[in-house]
Design a protein around this nucleic acid. Structure first.
Lengths: 226, 226
DNA sequence: ACCTGAACACCGTTCAAGT
DNA sequence: ACCTGAACACCGTTCAAGT
């Protein structure tokens, strides 16, 4: 049997597509810090140098991976002025969940304004929901910035705890241990509400923050601009 | 002349203190990513291995540097129920400014709950101001989390732009350029408010977010806890 | 045009050896 | 006890050489 091209061990040819998929596989398996050029290359049975034909550098690889992740987000139903608040809160929560499912990918939009097509569509839907709620454009412009920063930071923080292997329930114990090391007279308020401070899941805290921002939007006057 | 210890070239003896100060000098000069064990060691005229007598590892060095930075924050006057909102907004803004003055140090509290003494005192003061405003403890507990996440993420984002040398005014042009690459029919809302979207300084956006959260606190019911 | 091995200039951390 | 050089196991990126 002659080794024709077709009978080769079937190593898939490289392509930007293949590089991104390999990157996402590595992300799922080892988290964002595990996504090194070498690791992605190994996943593709090649050397790190080969990737540079398809991506300019590691940062651009991560940027493109991010936009792929964002494409998974379900935009939900069209904006309905009667239910815009619920729709908005649900969409924003789905965004968070999608980012959290991809350990640490949220560091990417934290590090540079995402300009991929999918991210733009998601942001556009958020704007649409706010308009359905009758919010003025200037407030919307600022709100978008604030709320995405909040979502990304939340997802990134979650990823770090997962990466460090901190079990959710040990955080409370850690915090208590740390506070007990300090001089209680310098932090009287904290000491008098230690129980309350450590209550509530990350999810509940996130949703409370969302509600604060949305409710605030209904009571704060639009920002002045120069 | 015999070389007595006193007549040596006066290399300051190492100490945790000295290591932290060297770390902060490197931070000011090269940003958070420049704070490598080797760079800090060079600053002290020694090798990286020598630092491990005083700090367990790089992460702990950064943690301790962070608490030192936090010690610079001016807590302001004692909480006054008549002016608590202004006091709170000012304090939170001063926290942001202090973090922004130390390029990228905000990545530290984003990566692990800060448990140093100075951070605890600052948080305690924020709690005190909220109590002066009559906010209930459960809302305070969640608010603290949310607002510090917001501040840290804002400071971190600023640091990245500075590190990458992006001039503040080029961001608008970059965003416009990115949007013009996309299919306008997929982002109708965005296209119809492009001007508004790029208005406003980072400072103005940050303060708007703060106002949303504080105003929200006055209109949202306290979170339920299991 | 695409792919590759080797090299360059870095990292954090450990450890045996010195004082 | 403190300090150190060298080594280990990594990085991202470049480049000359191959096909």
């Amino acid at each position: 049997m002659r080794a024709t091209p077709r009978s080769q061990p079937a190593k898939a040819p490289l392509s930007k597509e293949a590089v991104l998929e390999a990157g996402l596989r590595v992300l799922r398996a080892k988290g964002i810090d595990g996504v090194t050029m070498r690791a992605v290359a190994t996943e593709l049975d090649t050397g790190a140098a080969s990737l540079y034909v398809y991506v300019a550098n590691r940062q651009q690889l991560l940027n493109e991976m991010f936009d792929r992740v964002v494409s998974e987000i379900d935009l939900g139903e069209d904006p309905d002025p009667k239910r815009w608040r619920d729709q908005l809160e649900s969409l924003l929560t789905r965004i968070l969940e999608t980012l959290e499912r991809h350990h640490g990918i949220a560091r990417v939009p934290l590090a540079n304004v995402p300009t991929g097509p999918n991210a733009a569509v998601v942001a556009d839907r958020v704007i649409g929901l706010l308009r359905a709620g009758g919010i003025d454009d200037r407030s919307i412009a600022f709100f978008i910035d604030v709320v995405f920063l909040y979502i990304n930071a939340t997802a990134y923080e979650t990823a770090i705890y997962v990466e460090e292997g901190v079990p959710e329930d040990s955080i409370e114990a850690d915090i208590r241990a740390a506070f007990s090391q300090l001089d209680p007279t310098t932090i009287p308020n904290t000491m008098s509400m230690l129980d309350v401070l450590t209550q509530g899941s990350g999810e509940a805290r996130f949703r409370f923050g969302l509600r604060l921002m949305i409710e605030g939007l209904l009571h704060v006057s639009p920002p002045e601009v120069a």
